[in-house]
Computed example of a mutant assay.
Amino acid sequence: MKVDRADLTRAEEVGLLQSGQAEALWSFLSMQPQTTAQFRFAHILYYLGGMIAIGAMSLFMTVGYQTWGPVSLTVFAGAYGFLAWWIGVWFLNAKQLPIPAGILFTLTIVLVPLAVYGIEAALGHWESGGALYSDYHRYIDWRWLLLELATLAAAAVMLWRYRLPFMTMPVAVTLWYMSMDVAAWIAFGVENDAADWTYYDGLWNLRKLVSLGFGLVMLIIALRIDLTTRHDKRDFAFWLYLFGLLAFWGALSCMDSGSQLGKFLYCLLNLGLIFISAVLARRAFAVFGGLGVAGYLGYLSWSVFRDSLSFAFALSLIGLAVVFAGVWWNKHGEALGKKWRRQLSPQLAELIESRT
């Protein structure tokens, strides 16, 4: 729940606060450091600047690699990462600004695979079918695995030391990338040319299964982190939920159901994601679940019941039923959900109550 100055004034007017306490309390709250990201203009500038810096490294370091060689790549990445870390520590300790500090620490983590790539390139690891570092974000190759493991190790150390939520973003992205690179490695081993892997249907099917499994594991880890940090206002699980859903739902949506029953089960799974969104108070589940349900209804409209007037009326009735279900849930859902969550898991109940 968000509290603004007007809320405190009304509390003072009805006698919950004594005269003058509203102003003193508001001054105290305003002086507290902002630890959670919101859509404020300063926060937008923080993240915009961070993303520009992160993106620039891939472009600049690739040009530097072509100009000065792989050793310079590692040196520049290390120096730039140290500078980002040093400024982040200054923001955190001297200025009490955890959000820009977290962005700079994230930049430090993102530079780790770049430094490892430079070392590998200097040792001749990329001489056969060598890809540039700019291909890291679009090219599937088992040789990226060492970069990904180094990134995860660096992120683990940084999170253990500083515990800022945005640093989980490179962890989530790296795990997502790893799901695809591991699939290629399992399918064809280290002796095959990576350039040929993307042309095999078997790899595509395996990649979907591995991505599905990775996404599900990532969601379970995110839930565990959510429960463990339920008393902390900082959201450490957001990025893991987002990329876990991207891996799980993306793989699920790319699979061929093979029958109407399979497509209907796909719709039910997406409805389940919407239900999980209500239980966990996580909008990301509702977004992906809503896209899946909309895709299924679009399939019915254009492929199964095309030009069917009765289906249009039936779909309208379903929509109205959903609206009335929302009205009923708005009235009774909070009490029922609280009771159900308490019976299922007291920790889950604490998590949701603290968030809502």
Rank of each mutant, 00 (worst) to 15 (best):
G337E: 08
A11L: 15
A349R: 06
M255F: 02
W249M: 07
G124M: 05
Q260V: 12
L97D: 06
P113C: 00
E350S: 03
R143A: 11
S310M: 12
G333F: 11
A153S: 14
F313D: 13
Q96V: 12
V89L: 08
M1N: 14
A154S: 10
I318Q: 01
L83Q: 01
E334V: 15
A94T: 13
N192I: 04
W176V: 02
G129R: 02
S316V: 14
L132Q: 05
T174H: 03
G50W: 07
R355P: 10
A237Y: 03
A281Q: 01
W142M: 07
V190T: 15
L209N: 15
L25E: 08
D256H: 14
A286M: 12
F188P: 10
K331G: 00
S179T: 10
S308P: 00
V75P: 03
A314T: 13
W328K: 10
S58R: 06
L8P: 11
W142H: 13
Q96T: 10
V173A: 13
A183Y: 09
W329E: 01
P98M: 08
A237Q: 08
L146P: 05
R282E: 11
M51L: 13
A115F: 07
W185T: 08
G213F: 09
L8R: 10
T151G: 08
L212S: 02
G202I: 04
A172C: 11
G292D: 00
C267G: 02
L16K: 11
C254G: 15
G118C: 12
M158Y: 05
A237C: 11
D235R: 03
F60V: 12
M51Q: 05
L92Y: 08
T35N: 01
Y266E: 09
G290P: 08
H231C: 00
M167R: 06
E13I: 05
I119V: 15
W26L: 06
G215Q: 07
L92M: 00
Y177V: 04
R234E: 03
V157W: 06
A94N: 14
T151Y: 11
S27T: 15
D181N: 14
R40C: 09
Y117H: 01
A237N: 02
L45D: 11
P165G: 09
A131S: 14
A6F: 14
L73Y: 01
Q18L: 14
M180N: 03
M218L: 07
G20F: 04
R143H: 02
R143W: 07
A121E: 00
L8C: 10
V287I: 15
C254E: 15
H332T: 04
A24L: 07
W160N: 05
G64P: 01
G55W: 06
S27D: 15
S72Y: 05
F39V: 05
A22S: 09
